[in-house]
């Protein structure tokens, strides 16, 4: 039987399978961190990979394929989270307070408290961070990327990424302490 599937098509499908194997867990965790809902994270993952597959035929710059995929994932996150109106979560999106409050001398004590928080509570706190801080710390936490690649994905300068991650960690501690105090 004559193989009717063009070679380019099979190459693309093969490449797509490799991409799914390599990046699907991280994309799913990125989505989960951004929205803290399993069903929506699955939808975001699917939509991301549908867009990746559709764009793969025209994608030529293999060296940047990772950053390209995560940029798509972030865009899909924003679109779908906005559509689902997830901003009505229990924690309201916080203002950046990292510079307003001095480093707590008892931060080690705080660390002991917040270590006991549930995964959901941590994700909820991350999703309540200011958008750029949330993006930066989530991408960095995936451990796929260095600062430079996070900067490339977010299309911002390197030092700004470092600053966002530092602020995100400080703000996250404040948020997690709030969550801890609420749940008591």
């Amino acid at each position: 039987m004559i193989n009717m599937i063009p070679k380019v098509q099979t190459d693309t499908d093969h490449l797509f399978r490799e991409i799914v194997k390599k990046h699907s867990s991280r994309i799913y965790n990125l989505a989960l961190m951004k929205c803290n809902q399993v069903t929506l994270a699955e939808d975001i993952s699917q939509e991301t990979f549908i867009r990746v597959y559709k764009g793969l035929h025209n994608f030529r710059d293999d060296s940047h394929i990772g950053t390209w995929i995560y940029r798509i994932a972030l865009n899909v996150c924003y679109t779908m989270i906005k559509k689902e109106s997830l901003l009505s979560s229990r924690l309201v999106p916080m203002e950046d307070r990292a510079d307003l409050e001095p480093e707590d001398p008892n931060s080690d004590v705080q660390d002991i408290f917040i270590k006991d928080l549930e995964k959901d509570q941590i994700r909820e706190a991350v999703s309540a961070l200011p958008a750029l801080q949330s993006d930066a710390i989530t991408l960095y936490y995936l451990k796929e990327f260095q600062y430079t690649e996070v900067a490339e994905i977010m299309d911002i300068p390197l030092n700004t990424v470092k600053s966002h991650i530092r602020r995100a960690k400080a703000n996250l501690k404040l948020l997690l302490m709030e969550v801890y105090n609420e749940t008591g």
Binding site: L32, M33, K115, K119, R123, K169
Partner: peptide, 12 residues
């Protein structure tokens, strides 16, 4: 630090 450890533990 603790935030890194917490984020690490949220992995699914």
């Amino acid at each position: 630090d603790v935030v890194d450890a917490l984020l690490e533990n949220t992995w699914e």
